[in-house]
Nucleic acid binder design. Structure first.
Length: 802
RNA sequence: GCCCUAUUGGCGGAAUUGGUAGACGCGCGCGAUUCAAAAUCGCGUUCCUUCGGGAGUGCCUGUUCGACUCAGGCAUGGGGCACCA
């Protein structure tokens, strides 16, 4: 008998796993389970969020393995990105070197947590072994028409000096730097994610994902059904096309508004100083006012009129700062009576307000859909009917068409950074072409020792390709790297093929675990990649991640742990002090995975205490036989009843609920239920049998969560008799043993608990009623009153309604 | 403004299909052990109480024999989206 010494046990067991290659996975006949946790950015060291994320993944992986699944759990590094460049500048170490050192340290940390990864499939996005395939995929997307280049207004982050995707602009500020984003025009590469907008929206329904994540994606994709409607300009052959979701309100249209960035506005500004001044003013407001929705509505008349396509009346054309160029057509029809925003604008500039829709069964105009009036032949129609009818009529006159509009824009992937994957494109005479497959990878040039990052645009040797070609100097958005790594993992050690038969075998990911902060960006891009890869016949299935688990934040003093708040807790200190098993146990015990977790030192102590108790019970004990004795005492039967029913509960909690906190609570309860005399030397043979069975269940049940101590104890306790590793199988519960001989009846009067009584099973309802009435408190309550009804739930509750 | 989500003891949380609210753990209190402390073990721990009981899951209504659980309304916290036509 010895003290529980976690660091010694954990390194012994980790060495064993390593020597045995315990977590190396290859395809076989078993049902497969691909469990993936979002790979980390190698920022330096693990934080608590990582520890929680990876422990959850490891617990599920180990449990699934014990259940007989062929489990694949890989790990890698999202290794390109800006922090490496910043570190390079401040530490005088190259981004490559900085990243490599961080990976080495963090890999050691992951191993010290006892995470069962198949390191033979490790990948790093900054390795050319990885990104050459990314460049190939870019080429395949290009050949398929999914990639294009255009000059466009971009979100420019002046601090990070790079372009940001719309998804990376939060409240008008850069998602990483927090700097006010400027609008700038640059040549950019784009991926046509919008080609898949409909499918990205539709197939959300089939996914076993948290509803809030699916809703966020739906909102982001933002599908609206409506129509394009043409308005001819007066005295001209030109026309303006508007987009509206409410063609039924068209008879209320009293003006058109165009975006300040619309071509017509820019043309007018060339000749009109007032308009020119107005456009300048709009730019200033846009840059200054982060919250666009609260910005004041500004407008200026163009002096031009449009002809209403159905009434033939003249309506004025305005420039309005609230009209977005890149949504719809950059032109809207103003219907002040039935749109809040149009109303504000019309009120301010004294524009005509015409009501054409009444709320159903009333004479009251409304913003919502209703019944049309003053709308010629459409009078009396309901909005829905009118929309269909008006679109049909416009279509036949070639004045418009019904269509679907998305909020989602194409994905701008060019970044003006050094530490990223070079975009494999070369130029000659201004003509762009994608680098041939045989020429890949286009390697990121190495930097001189101790050098900070040098942008590719300043690297002459890199720019000048052969035959007078010039290289593209932008690198990919790092979200490109992380959009397909899940598919590469199974093929990560294949340098001949990007996605081989292993990827076909393991995909899709059965369970993907990570933070909610990736609900839109990363998860949407990955879904797009998977669909595009499917259409290239490189993967099977429509979706990459079958089930998604979003783990909650780790909090300290009620706030998210973050460097800026100064409330971080270094997990390493706790691993060193208590061991990985205690940290894992604590993390899983203190909150369900999806909820936030409040870090508490004293509670960590509590988890440690339990492992010490477990150690004390099992260490030095040896299983001599698993032969079931011929007779077992009532006390023994009670323990077995508890053991077997607890095992069933645990299985259910692991399987269908990912409710690890209740798994642990149940294990502790079972542990507490062991009678003291069963543990003593004087215990009888049958008592020892029942105890041993309980120990086996406890070790097995806690193994996914605290794998080191359980495996170590297992070796000493049972391995010589049961002759298998602890994770080779999951024990079976016997439902026959789970039945108790008696039960406790709860007695209610008018639905309130008024008494309890222990009874034997098998009594009929009359006997139960009599027994219940014999309780003193019940008798007193019933006396002199009429029992109107008796409700009896078998062997649970009896309720007397008086 | 719209959408999602949460609200249960001093604290983290449990109650899985409407059927004993507070499992399990932390903390706290008392006791054992110890010269003492740490560690460990035992008992207690929702609130009120005249010790018979009574009340209680953010608030208000309702459905039901019975509501943390279902329905309608409201409040507060967290998250997402937002001149999206």
């Amino acid at each position: 008998m010895s003290e529980y010494n976690p660091s010694e046990i954990e390194s012994t067991i980790q060495k064993l796993w390593n020597d045995e290659n315990r977590f190396k996975s290859t395809p076989d006949e078993r049902e497969k389970f691909y469990c993936l946790s979002m790979f980390p950015y190698p920022s330096g060291k693990l934080h608590m969020g990582h520890v929680r994320n990876y422990t959850i993944g490891d617990v599920i992986s180990r449990y699934k393995k014990m259940q007989g699944f062929n489990v694949f759990q890989p790990m890698g590094w999202d290794a390109f990105g800006l922090p490496a460049e910043n570190a390079a500048i401040s530490n005088k170490v190259s981004p490559a070197e900085w990243t490599k050192q961080n990976i080495e340290y963090m890999k050691g940390q992951l191993n010290s947590l006892g995470l069962g990864y198949d390191w033979s499939k490790e990948l790093r996005t900054c390795d050319s072994d990885y990104y050459k395939w990314e460049q190939l995929l870019f080429k395949k997307f290009y050949d398929k028409g999914l990639v294009y280049k255009k000059k466009s207004m971009v979100n420019w982050d002046p601090v990070d000096e790079t372009v940001l995707a719309n998804e990376q602009v939060i409240d008008g500020k850069g998602w990483r730097s927090g700097a006010q984003v400027e609008i700038k025009e640059i040549d950019q590469w784009f991926i046509k994610i919008t080609d898949y907008a409909d499918e990205l929206l539709e197939s959300l329904d089939e996914l076993d994902w948290p509803e809030n994540v699916k809703t966020m994606q739906r909102n982001w994709i933002g599908k609206s059904e409506g129509a394009h409607i043409d308005f001819k300009l007066e005295n001209s052959n030109e026309k303006l096309t508007i987009f509206s979701t409410r063609p039924d309100t068209i008879f209320g249209a009293s003006f058109l508004a165009i975006s300040p960035q619309h071509k017509l506005a820019i043309d007018l500004a060339k000749e009109n100083i007032e308009i020119s001044n107005f456009l300048e003013k709009c730019k200033e407001v846009k840059a200054a006012e982060a919250d666009m929705a609260k910005a004041e509505k500004l407008g200026i008349p163009t002096g031009l009129d449009a002809i209403h396509p159905l009434t033939g009346k003249k309506i004025p054309i305005w420039i309005g700062n609230f009209v977005l160029l890149d949504y719809g057509t950059g032109v809207v029809m103003g219907v002040p009576a039935h749109d809040q925003r149009d109303f504000e604008f019309a009120s301010k500039y004294n524009l005509v307000i015409t009501q054409v829709i009444n709320k159903e069964n009333t004479e009251l105009p409304c913003l919502e859909k209703g019944i049309l009036f003053d709308s010629n032949k459409y009078d009396g129609m309901h909005s829905e009917e009118a929309i269909t009818s008006i679109i049909k009529d416009l279509q036949s006159k070639e004045l418009g068409e019904g269509l679907v509009q998305f909020r989602l824009r194409d994905w701008g992937i060019s970044r003006q950074r050094y530490w990223g994957c070079p975009i494999p494109v070369v130029y000659k005479d201004g003509e762009a072409s994608v680098v041939e497959e045989s020429e890949l990878p286009v390697k990121l040039p190495e930097l001189p020792e101790g050098s900070g990052p040098i942008p590719l645009s300043q690297n002459e040797a890199f720019i000048n390709s052969k035959d007078g070609y010039k290289r593209e100097t932008d690198t990919f958005d790092t979200f490109m790297d992380s959009s397909w790594y899940y598919a590469r993992f199974p093929s990560a050690d294949n340098d001949k093929d990007v996605l081989d038969e292993n990827s076909r075998y393991w995909l899709p990911v059965d369970l993907y675990i990570g933070g909610i902060e990736h609900a839109i960006l990363h998860l949407l891009y990955s879904r797009f990649f998977h669909k595009a890869l499917r259409d290239l016949d490189m993967v099977d299935g429509d979706e990459p991640f079958k089930k998604l688990l979003t783990q909650g934040m780790v909090l300290k003093d009620g706030a998210k742990m973050s460097k800026s708040k100064g409330n971080t807790v270094d997990p390493q200190a706790y691993i060193d002090k208590y061991g990985a098993d205690t940290v894992r146990l604590y993390m899983m015990f203190t909150s369900p995975p999806e909820q936030s977790l409040e870090w508490s030192e004293s509670s960590v102590e509590g988890s440690f205490r339990f492992l010490k108790k477990l150690w004390k019970l099992v260490d030095g004990r040896k299983l001599e036989s698993i032969q079931e004795p011929s007779s077992i005492s009532d006390e023994g039967k009670n323990l077995r009843q508890k053991s077997h029913s607890t095992l069933q509960k645990i299985q259910n909690d692991y399987d269908s609920r990912y409710s690890f906190n209740t798994v642990i609570a149940a294990i502790m309860e079972l542990f507490n239920a062991i009678p003291d005399n069963f543990k003593e030397d004087s215990a009888t043979e049958e008592e020892v049998f029942c105890l041993n069975e309980t120990i086996i269940f406890i070790l097995k049940a806690i193994h996914p969560i605290a794998p080191h101590i359980s495996e170590y104890l297992w070796q000493g306790f049972a391995q010589n008799i049961l002759n298998e590793n602890i994770d080779s199988s999951w024990p079976k519960f016997d439902s026959k043993l789970m039945e108790a001989s008696g039960f406790q009846l709860v007695v209610q009067i008018n639905g309130k608990v008024r008494g309890k009584i222990s009874l034997d099973k098998g009594l009929d309802q009359k006997e139960i009623e009599e027994a219940a009435k014999s309780i003193e408190n019940i008798r007193n309550n019933i006396e002199g009153k009429e029992i109107r009804k008796v409700i009896y739930i078998k062997e649970k509750i009896i309720n007397f309604v008086l």
